[in-house]
Design a protein around this nucleic acid. Structure first.
Lengths: 226, 226
DNA sequence: TTAGATTAAATTGTCGACAATCGACAAAAT
DNA sequence: ATTTTGTCGATTGTCGACAATTTAATCTAA
């Protein structure tokens, strides 16, 4: 793995670690030693250190002074807490983006929603997985609330961890989520703020149910996936 | 200013810088040079660097690669955005803490609310300022949603900046906020989730109105206070 | 005089080394 | 046998120096 000098090194290391954590190559609760990562990537400890601070912001690792970094454990209560927060934040986005989004931004949203639909029907789970995130990010951008965008963005890594684990366990059942994305998109396109918000909140709650039913928390303690 | 070795040095430096920013000793938009801070405090640049990462998480500085740190500018749109987000997050807290708080935790909340009331009536603005924050933090703790607590906590510095600037400009007008704290507290004590949530949301919106009416954004461009 | 290019200074990014601290294991005392 | 204390190893925290990059200042040309 080589690092382009253009973008911050710390950010790239953070992305690298985040990916390994999502794929469970580094397990929840596991310790991350700065020196190990540094040698593994052929860099100094300084940027690794900064990367860990970044991951701390994203709630992916916990940093305790003099005791180093630990991958956060995703318990059932954490999933529940996260979904409660997301319901509010995404609800706000759903409420504001129909009002504040330009026609072009709504077109981008529309594209992602439709792509998610076709991917779902083709059984392309990886594609749907990506499309749904694209849909959400596009909605956030259209909302024109930079703070909201930042705050949701810092929750995305853990959402990825959960969804990644969930759809690994569920197979194609997650496909049933596709219709709700379409519904939400329709309200956004109609610029119906109230219904868009409600749909997003429902979506979040449904996602929580999926994650808890399928024992995602247990998976996140288990062994590495593919 | 001496630093106790017990707690992380970076955290203490972050707190130091945060305080100076809140008091406008470092103005919005101003650049923060690592070397300057390092020498000012008699430490190396490494912990200063980490402190800046911490402040970035708290949305108090903006870090652009190779270009250093800049104190975030608090514009009117930022105040508006922040209040939108806070309304959701604090609303959630207001909704959950009546349900999840223990009797002891509710007692702590009650104390802070009453303290805020007496401070307001004695014209002790500094005390009321602190009591209101204590009230909020106690509610968050009682909510039993650690993630929510973390996320609101990282918004507090900017809330402090705004409120500090606002009540410097408003004098005692902010005292009128005291009644709404009492009202909210009553609902919490009665464990009335719906009304507690509504009250918190109203409170946030009222705060936004105060901040915007009093041109807090302009103050945050101005000269250092006392 | 102004615009652009070139050079010089200042500042951030990265590194390797040293110091401080914590956890585990062993030894001694109750 | 259990608890306490002491030492050792491993790991994080901090530092000063060097490299890379940006910002500014200066100089040249239109």
């Amino acid at each position: 793995m080589d690092f382009s000098l253009s973008n911050g090194l710390a950010e790239q290391i953070a992305a690298y670690l985040e990916d390994r954590i999502i794929r469970l190559a580094i397990k929840p609760g596991e310790r991350i030693r700065e020196a190990v990562v540094a040698e593994e990537l052929g860099v100094s400890r300084s940027p690794v250190r900064e990367a860990l601070r970044i991951l701390e912001n994203n709630h992916v690792v916990e940093l305790t002074p003099r005791r180093g970094a630990r991958v956060t454990v995703i318990s059932e209560t954490f999933i529940s807490d996260l979904c409660d927060v997301l319901a509010e934040l995404l609800g706000l986005a759903g409420s504001k983006c129909p009002a504040n989004g330009t026609d072009e931004e709504l077109a981008v949203i529309d594209e992602a929603a439709k792509r998610s639909w076709t991917c779902a029907n083709n059984g392309n789970l990886e594609g749907q997985y990506k499309a749904v995130f694209d849909f959400g990010v596009a909605c956030l951008k259209a909302t024109k609330n930079q703070l909201l965008e930042q705050m949701v963005t810092e929750l995305l890594p853990n959402l990825r961890r959960i969804i990644y684990a969930t759809f690994s366990a569920m197979g194609d059942a997650i496909r049933t989520n596709a219709d709700i994305v379409i519904t939400g998109n329709n309200y956004v396109q109609q610029r119906n703020a109230a219904m868009a918000e409600k749909t997003v909140r429902d979506y979040t709650m449904r996602m929580r149910a999926y994650a808890l039913e399928n024992n995602t928390a247990a998976i996140l303690f288990g062994t590495p996936l593919s």
